[in-house]
Design a protein around this nucleic acid. Structure first.
Length: 808
DNA sequence: GGCCTGCCGCCC
DNA sequence: GGCGGCAGGCCT
């Protein structure tokens, strides 16, 4: 047995990718394993911190003349991370320029992240001054936080500490406690009942009642809560009953099942179309052959991708294997979840952001203990502790929400591909509008290309009509509604059918502008205008959360001619109510869906036809399936097109194609109306025709000409600081060292101020590196990562983002 | 000379 | 984050 353990330590703001060596105390020699969490002393102050055991060493393996400290204790009886998780963390840290500790933490449920508390304890009470005594208020131990103390008190406390009159205690708190329930098995039988009864005092009525109760439940196991409370009040009474041999006691883990209340009707596999059958067969063969083969399943909306997913999952389960399915957070709500639950019942574990930390931990435990064989979840579910994976599915694989925006900045799709290699299992990347990178790999044969070209019900794709707003605005009854669209809406309402209206939120919110002097109300902390929120009657900043009252007079010129400009969902709703006073309108945006479960409730309401029009932002475009919706209107197709992001065409195309697919999914045919100021733009034209293939080749050509992915790799460096000068200085310094390490083939854009220079009183500059092959770059960026930690003290932050999903 | 303060490097 | 070390400044 090794004497020493390698530990990745969790020290806030001081992160290394180097493990530290600790001595294993004899009492832990036999039980310590890789992947366990431990508590170790760190630094001069012997501060206690959490760490992960990632390896072992013997004395010969290191020749260093430093004092080796001992592990204090373990936090786990069994490893919380398997070997796969540890290997994956190494790979992630390397690929995403992240600290290993952040990768390890990302794989565990939140509750396993240590929380630290600091306490002061009195050793020599006689040395304390009156002020310090007041601080302790008669207690021997007090929790404290430097920031909350006056400098005078702090100085005094520091002095007392030097004199050993006080000591600081660091504590690591583990919040991961499985909820336990006491299970009782009755050992009282008809045979021994009389005998046991004789042993009880005649006047002990409670005991006799209990015995009678147990005789009724003979041999059964039940929770303690099912025992009438008047029979057994305390745990010691229970234990006594166990001693007498009346019952057997057991502690069992209780799970908080967030879906427990809902009864789901079980569904059977549906009959497949020829195309679906080809897809299911291809993936099933790869499952049987244990091939780590990725498939691109490209199918128009309504072509039955989900049924392909479900049947391949069933195939994996039949082989005794498990399955992992990722869906975008937004569509993780009602319908997709229902369909998976309906097929696989209690074998399904759900992981999504609406779960409480406790619920999430319970689901994680169910997976780890192999009680759940099918895992469905959003981005972070990609780390679910599933073993023996048979197939992994990524639905709507082009969704940008699969990319994590903070450390570790991973793309779930890439993690999936890694895990598939590890488990030797196939991957299905499903989408109607695959990311260009994905489709390009299918072109090259890296992914196998499966196509679903027909809608299941044989319906034609919806008719799409473009409205050129440059013309239409002249006769439009309201600036956001053309005559054509309004007429179409009225027609549906008359037929008692439903309508979905979408507006692009980006650049589409209400702000306040003074018509006298042109003053625009801006956030005091960020370089953005404040957005009007009618529900709270206030002006809000979407970046830092700043909130203030709606001005009655212009703060600049004191004119009363200050009014709302632009269009938010709220304003559109108000317009719509004026145009169609009898229509029932449901608004769905960030504001109306903030509360837990609100998203679900709104959709259920719309599904039950309690509203005629669903008005919302991007979130309504995804995965919804309402048979009675026969008209989809897009109010502003092009607001995203003008953004300085090379992906804006791709985004617009995807969004329009997706939302168009929402119309007429069942027996009724659908109509789509798209209002735009750029009717001739290729992304809009081709989205109208639902022509992904032409869009793909056209866009690929542009990417090739402009040196963008998938022809080039990109890395974005963002530098932020408290002053603009500091941010600029640091970013130019980085640019200089980059020039030294890069080959002439690489392209560096910038440094330039970010599109929003100031957010929350920090200034942002950015650099973009475009390259094909740069052997020295990865090493340089890892050095930059370690270096950037020093800068953090001076308030300079550097963020390295490989393959960023947006350039803003 | 003594001691407070700010900055820097290191922590198994 | 926290601690010791070290350099520079000002007090008595």
């Amino acid at each position: 047995m090794a004497e020493y353990a390698q530990v990745i330590v969790d020290v806030p703001t001081m992160q290394t990718n180097r493990p530290y060596t600790y001595k294993i105390p004899t009492k832990l020699q036999s039980q310590l394993e890789c992947g366990m969490r431990v508590i170790v002393p760190f630094g001069k102050g012997e501060r206690k911190i959490q760490g992960f055991v990632v390896g072992f060493a013997t004395k010969e393996e290191f020749v260093e003349n430093i004092e080796i400290k001992e592990i204090i204790s373990t936090m786990d009886l069994a490893p919380v991370l398997a070997k796969e998780g540890l290997l994956l963390a190494d790979w992630l840290a390397q690929k995403t320029f992240s600290f290993k500790i952040s990768c390890l933490q990302a794989m565990l449920p939140n509750v396993m992240r240590a929380s630290y508390t600091k306490k002061l304890r009195v050793l020599s009470p006689e040395l304390l001054s009156d002020e310090v005594k007041l601080f302790f208020a008669g207690q021997a131990e007090v929790e404290f936080n430097e920031e909350q103390l006056s400098t005078k008190l702090l100085r005094e406390l520091t002095l007392l500490r030097k004199k050993d009159a006080l000591e600081v205690i660091y504590q690591v708190n583990d919040r991961a406690k499985p909820k336990m329930v006491m299970m009782i098995t009755s050992l009282v039988t008809r045979e021994n009942y009389e005998m046991l009864k004789k042993q009880v005092r005649k006047n002990a009525t409670r005991q006799l009642e209990l015995l009678a109760f147990l005789a009724q439940k003979s041999g059964q196991t039940f929770a303690r809560s099912e025992l009438p409370t008047n029979l057994v009040q305390t745990l010691s009474q229970l234990k006594k009953a166990a001693e007498l041999g009346w019952i057997k006691l057991e502690e069992k883990e209780a799970y908080r099942d967030p879906y427990a209340t809902k009864e789901v009707q079980k569904t059977q596999p549906q009959k497949l179309t020829a195309e679906q059958q080809v897809a299911v067969d291809a993936v099933s063969q790869a499952i049987d052959a244990k091939q780590a083969q990725p498939f691109l399943l490209q199918g128009v909306t309504g072509s039955g991708k989900t049924e392909v997913y479900l049947q391949t999952i069933a195939h994996a389960l039949k082989n005794g294997q498990t399955a992992l399915m990722l869906v975008p957070e937004i569509s993780l709500t009602p319908q997709m979840v229902q369909r998976v639950k309906a097929r696989f019942g209690s074998q399904v574990a759900m992981l999504h952001s609406a779960l409480s930390d406790g619920e999430r931990y319970d689901e994680w435990r169910r997976i780890e203990r192999k009680e759940a064989k099918v895992v469905v979840g959003a981005r972070s579910a990609v780390f679910a502790p599933v073993s023996d994976l048979g197939v992994i599915i990524v639905d709507e694989e082009h969704e940008t929400s699969y990319k994590q925006e903070d450390m570790p900045r991973y793309h779930a799709r890439n993690v999936v591909l890694w895990r598939a290699k590890y488990h030797h299992c196939p991957v299905i990347l499903g989408s109607a509008t695959p990311a260009l990178e994905t489709r390009a790999r299918a072109q090259k044969g890296v992914y196998r290309h499966l196509k679903l070209t027909k809608r299941i019900n044989g319906n034609a794709l919806p008719q799409v009509e473009l409205v050129d707003m440059r013309q239409a605005i002249r006769t439009a009854p309201r600036p956001d509604f053309s005559e054509v669209l309004l007429a179409q809406i009225k027609e549906r309402l008359a037929r008692n059918e439903q309508v979905v209206l979408m507006l692009n939120r980006r650049g589409y919110s209400s702000f306040v502008l003074c018509r006298e002097c042109g003053f625009v109300l801006k956030c005091p902390n960020c370089d953005v205008s404040l957005t009007l929120h009618m529900d709270t009657h206030s002006m809000k900043c979407h970046y830092c959360g700043h909130e203030e009252a709606i001005p009655q007079r212009c703060p600049s010129c004191n004119s009363k001619k200050i009014q709302y400009y632009g269009t938010g969902t709220q304003k559109v709703q108000a317009e719509l109510e004026k145009l169609l006073p009898n229509a029932r309108i449901l608004r769905m945006d960030v504001d109306t869906t903030r509360k837990k479960g609100a998203h679900e409730r709104l959709l259920a309401k719309f599904g039950a036809h309690e509203a005629d029009i669903l008005l919302g932002t991007q979130m309504i475009a995804k995965g919804l399936d309402f048979p009675n919706v026969t008209l989809v209107g897009v109010l502003n197709a092009d607001t995203a097109l003008g953004l300085p992001d090379y992906r804006s065409s791709e985004r617009t195309f995807q969004l329009l194609t997706q939302v168009s697919g929402r119309a007429g999914r069942a027996d009724k045919s659908g109509q789509v109306v798209i209002q735009t100021y750029n009717p001739e733009h290729y992304a809009i034209q081709l989205a109208c025709k639902q022509d992904y293939e032409r869009f793909f080749f056209y866009e690929m050509n542009l990417r090739h000409l402009n040196h963008y992915p998938p022809y080039y790799y990109t890395i974005r460096l963002t530098v932020s600081a408290k002053t603009e000068a500091a941010a600029a200085k640091e970013s130019f310094a980085i640019k200089k060292s980059l020039d030294q390490c890069l080959s002439p083939e690489a392209i560096v854009l910038g440094p330039t101020p970010s599109s929003i220079l100031r957010i929350n009183n920090r200034f942002y500059y950015q650099l973009v590196i475009k390259y094909k092959s740069e052997p020295a770059l990865e090493t340089y960026l890892h050095e930059l990562l370690l270096q950037s930690q020093q800068g953090e003290r001076k308030g300079i932050q550097v963020v390295i983002d490989r393959d960023p999903v947006n350039f803003l």
